[in-house]
Design a protein around this nucleic acid. Structure first.
Lengths: 339, 339
DNA sequence: CTGTTAGCGCTTTCAC
DNA sequence: GTGAAAGCGCTAACAG
């Protein structure tokens, strides 16, 4: 593989000159530049970013570590981050944490080994985790997404309380008094925030609060079981709020298995929107997160943080809470026509 | 940031000894090893993979370049590749080609700059592209997925002809004589193979072939338009085969807009399965690709290829065609109960 | 069992 | 406008 040295020899100039024409980092006479370009083509030179990275100690790459890559919600966020990073000349290492703290630590270490300039992380544990400690002690620029578990880092997510307010409000407007909530995996920051938000919204609306109407469904099957249990009770809720997209699949399967109809027998409002939501029967009313903006903002904060760390100026951790929206379709009891 | 040198000094040994205990690459006395470990902890040393990569000229990272990361089909494949690579100690750089040849070339170059050990690519163009040429002239180990456009590389995909045989056969068994086909983006290898397969299957079944019943819908809206057109004709088809998941969304929206019912007015068989497919109304009958296996196999072929290139033994390009399956639910006219 | 040292390919001062 | 040369942090002969 041709090196900068080969080019230099071929063009009868110094490696430093070659370096400068490649990077456009200092004036070079037109004639010299031409000879260098020619030499580059002649020897088939492609710059070695590894060597460069070692010399300048920056890789122009960032790590992203989230759970369940194949979940469309994270897929959208990953896509948005990738797009923004590519625009900024950064390349992303993608890792799945599988929501396993040990694995999470392992992949973060693997990313640090490869000297990513920074990391975007959706932490699996609330509070101080080994992963977060590792990131902190190694001074790795980092921004948290979705699960906002530590105030030590920049973080971007949505206003979950506000979201649940809309959900409960909308359902209450439909006359529902007993509303159940199938949250996501218990212990996750998002599930906690949404559950709290659900409680608060109930109170705000003056609705009686029944703790037994809150269930966590940490998987499709878990959510299905939770929904089945909830809907089989004599004092069953007349509406269900669901804390994330995966849980929604389980809930819908459960409802179908029971033989109930939506929204007549039970109204439904979900979390996370996607292209398919309107192909469901009935068309799903959901909270839509601004995934594109979440990803973009995360990337933006990260580069800002990286830059700050390099000039070691202390930037204080920034919290960004984006506003979700309620996409009203039919599962809530409304009858909005298809888009 | 602590280097191997700091550790060596702290432990009063040579850098080579430190290197060897870190990598377990030669015998070291227990006592020395202990001192080194202690020093590592004391100075807070974490190995620099960039420096290591430069020295050994291998990065233990691979690039993956596919279109539309947020498409669940690719999301699943990406997830599978990531899992397998992580298992093998490789980290993946993820790039979206956006199905744009120029951008594709750009990201492949960016990956090569970072000296990935190999690349997994879903090419956007059929035939020899600049990207493929670049990969070839730079001798970058590479395996093609999904769109199998060149015989010069290892490649893994599915038996598209076989898939379309199942689709047409199943629909024909339901008595359909006029079957339409909404393919994916025209010009893509998969769309071409599936269209050819569709034609062949028709012939095999002795069904009349009507070229006007084949439409390409290269996006949700495109597919919707194509379906609308097809279903508005007096001699409209009684069944529709759809070439990929995104097109299916458009088709379903079109059918709803027209006010037809599935499968009574028009039967439907799609391509690509996902968790949501059974929440649709009616539950979707689809061709399911073994995405997990596609990803795993691609990673497997890539590491094999990388190893071969290193010992520069010539491995001849391998073609892997996995078998898809027909997941029968209801949109085809069957009435399979929910799982 | 351990140390010395020459690279890996590139950037970047410093000097001309 | 250009070049010489000292690193960046690590590995792996080679030598002892």
């Amino acid at each position: 593989m041709a090196t900068i040295f080969d080019v230099a020899r071929h063009a009868a100039v110094s490696t430093s000159t070659v370096s400068h024409v490649v990077n456009g980092t200092r004036k070079v006479s037109a004639e010299t530049a031409r000879r260098v370009q020619e030499a580059i083509a002649a020897v088939g030179y492609t710059p070695n970013g590894i060597a460069r990275a070692l010399a300048v100690s920056t890789t122009n790459s960032v790590g992203i570590a989230v759970s369940t890559i194949s979940n469309p919600y994270f897929g959208d966020i990953i896509g948005a981050i990738e797009r923004e990073c590519t625009r900024l000349g950064l390349m992303v290492f993608l890792s799945d944490t599988h929501d396993d703290p040990e694995h999470e630590l392992r992949v973060v270490k693997a990313q640090h080994l490869r000297r990513v300039d920074g990391i975007i992380l959706a932490p699996s544990e609330v509070g101080d985790s080994e992963t977060l400690n590792y990131i902190e002690t190694n001074k790795i620029p980092c921004v948290l997404v979705d699960r906002l578990t530590s105030t030590k880092f920049d973080r971007v997510g949505i206003q979950n309380k506000y979201a649940m307010g809309m959900v409960v409000g909308h359902l209450a407007d439909h006359g529902h008094q007993r509303i159940g909530f199938i949250s996501g995996q218990p212990g996750f920051a998002t599930a906690i925030e949404r559950t709290d938000g659900f409680r608060a919204a109930l109170a705000e609306r003056g609705l009686a609060f029944d703790d037994t109407l809150i269930r966590s469904g940490d998987s499709i099957d878990g959510a299905a079981a939770a929904a089945t249990e909830l809907l089989s009770r004599p004092d069953r809720p007349s509406a269900l709020a669901v804390g994330n997209n995966m849980s929604m699949i389980g809930v819908m399967r459960a409802i179908r298995a029971i033989g109930m109809r939506v929204p007549e027998d039970v109204a439904l409002v979900g979390f996370d929107d996607f292209e398919w939501a309107d192909c469901f029967e009935p068309r799903l009313t959901v909270i839509a997160q601004p995934v594109e903006e979440i990803g973009r903002k995360a990337a933006e904060l990260l580069v800002r943080r990286i830059a700050a760390d390099q000039n070691d100026e202390a930037l204080k951790p920034q919290l960004v809470r984006l506003k979700p929206t309620l996409v009203v379709r039919q599962s809530c009891g409304c009858n909005h026509p298809a888009s």
